[in-house]
Design a protein around this nucleic acid. Structure first.
Lengths: 331, 331
DNA sequence: TATTAGCAATGGAAAGTAAAGATTGCTAAA
DNA sequence: TTTAGCAATCTTTACTTTCCATTGCTAATA
């Protein structure tokens, strides 16, 4: 269906457009392809018939269509080998032993976004596999206590609770002891249920004012399980440096999506490996592509996403993500 | 120096410009001032001589200069009484008892930014007055332990530490016991010093492998004291809705500042009360004004800043911040 | 049959022109 | 001191015009 020469030509056109951001004309690539501009024009017309190329107006050069990018990514692109410079910058992060997994990921996507001028996001560590390890309370002042919830994977959340003055510290302690005795080991998303059906009936008999206390802790746990989508941006505005974002409306569109938790959270749904979504396939905007990968290390898992223009350097970003994934394992 | 009529006129012009974002012409306000456009033109010329008004070109209407805004804010503006609608929206936050102080502040500035279309920032809780309350460790796996640092005000930070396999859990526990015994009660920014001069000499004799352990904890504390500037945005991109940000360059300028931790951190330096900084007085951009106030409640302190165009509704924002400050005290 | 040279046609981008509209400063009268 | 009237100024918008890159097509060539 598509000849080798057409493949070669599509590859050259896509890569030229990625480099220059300007529509590619027949003249411009005829040295590279060793044939005349007329021949290229003929082939370009056929590639346009196949919906792999587009033009903006009658007399403009061609740009890749969404399908064109897709074909390029699936069939023509070779994963670029990383430059020593890029590698060096990332290594300074991986070699820093005082960083934990989360910090390492954050720092490394900041590097990626800096060297590519794209925007990077980590969608963090949903703690659904976490189990409750411990509940701890620290009395601060009269009616103000600090509660700390710790999971077996080392996720920590804390919250200051305000209790009526009438509740004695002893009763709080008793409650916490009960929770620790009965609920520790439970998967974090089942804690609410267990509190309701197993702790509540017992607490009733042991603790005065159990209602206030119970509700306070119940709310605190509920919040914990809700509060799971942890989003960290690297180079949030970097994508604005790309020439496709020279129009104020496009800027507002994409930044609006960045502020919209729902759009961002959706990005977590993804299959394994490194996945590439182009234009309308993304949940963000027809003007961007997203390269994503899930990680799952030591029980913590999340998603790394790099957002750039459709004209992004797919090969380079794939190589960067591969490198990060490989080196994260060591943590 | 400046007549009453001129004051009145300046007030009308500033408020008209705040409302419409369009240069104010003599014709446009002559009904409000009960005199002819020619008279207004004469007075406008004098206000321009006083550098309180400006015009963009020869035949455009007048807009307030920075000095004009300043004069308005200092002498002419009356703090607007809040609308019932605005008040209602904030009350739903203040009445929610399950929110702690930090969440209440965050939620309320989100409301403010939503109803005003300005950008809001909380610069959080520098913990310099905090004292160490407790250090806790939770062993997770072989060489992976969770350390939690708690201050007397309820600030919590945690970090996963990786220790060489050769270090026994007992030794870790001993170290933590020592730290708790010797350092609890110390102001958080003096902890590093105390560790070095009081804990290190003693730990030497009690704990094998003290070096690794000591360094790990030392680093963790050091990070704690560094990690103090906590920034939370509300409606980060809201300011883009203002007509002054219709140029891509201005958008990039202000968003660049939002990404720049240094510019943002500087905003913490501020005197008491509600302060207004106009244009070049801000650290952000000549196109914006910032209305800031410090809060200090229950030992936690921070700064709330609202960022809008110079043409912002000063009176309304001041009223909103006043209202928030008054109601925060109850937490 | 595949390739190429040549050329008219297309449409955008840039520069120049013109007309319309808003608003000012100034002058002179009230 | 205020006001009416008007020329001067500058923006905005629309409309030409020119220029130029690029295409598609046709006809010649390998």
């Amino acid at each position: 269906m598509i000849t080798n020469r057409q493949k070669e030509m599509l590859k050259v056109i896509v890569e030229e457009y990625i480099k220059t951001a300007k529509p590619v004309s027949s003249n411009h690539i005829c040295k590279k392809l060793k044939c005349s501009s007329a021949t290229i024009r003929n082939e370009m017309a056929r590639l346009e018939d196949l919906h792999l190329l587009e033009k903006n107006h009658f007399a403009s050069g061609r740009i890749p269509s969404e399908e064109g990018y897709k074909y390029y990514v699936d069939n023509l692109m070779r994963p670029k080998t990383m430059t020593g410079e890029d590698m060096l910058k990332l290594q300074t992060i991986f070699r820093n032993n005082s960083l934990d997994l989360n910090d390492t990921i954050k720092k490394s996507i900041e590097i990626v976004s800096e060297i590519t001028n794209y925007t990077a996001i980590v969608l963090g560590t949903s703690s659904k596999d976490n189990r409750l390890k411990k509940v701890e309370i620290v009395p601060l002042e009269d009616n103000k206590i600090l509660s700390i919830v710790i999971t077996d994977k080392g996720v920590v959340q804390h919250k200051i609770l305000y209790l009526p003055e009438s509740v004695a510290t002893d009763e709080v302690k008793k409650t916490v002891e009960l929770i620790n005795k009965l609920v520790v080991g439970t998967p974090i998303n089942e804690v609410s249920e267990k509190l309701e059906y197993e702790v509540k009936p017992i607490i009733k008999d042991y603790v005065n004012q159990y209602e206030v206390l119970y509700n306070t802790f119940y709310d605190a746990f509920h919040e914990f399980t809700e509060n799971q989508t942890n989003v960290h941006f690297g180079g949030r505005n970097n994508i604005l440096k790309q020439p496709e974002f020279s129009s104020i409306d496009k800027v507002k569109e994409i930044l609006g999506k960045f502020d919209d938790i729902d759009s961002i959270s959706k990005m977590q749904e993804d299959s394994n490996g490194i996945n590439i979504y182009i234009g309308s396939e993304t949940d963000l905007s027809n003007d961007v592509s997203v390269i994503k990968t899930k990680y799952s290390i030591d029980g913590e898992d999340g998603t790394i996403a790099i957002i750039g223009p459709k004209r992004m350097e797919y090969g380079r970003v794939v190589a960067l993500l591969d490198y990060i994934k490989d080196n994260l394992g060591g943590k």
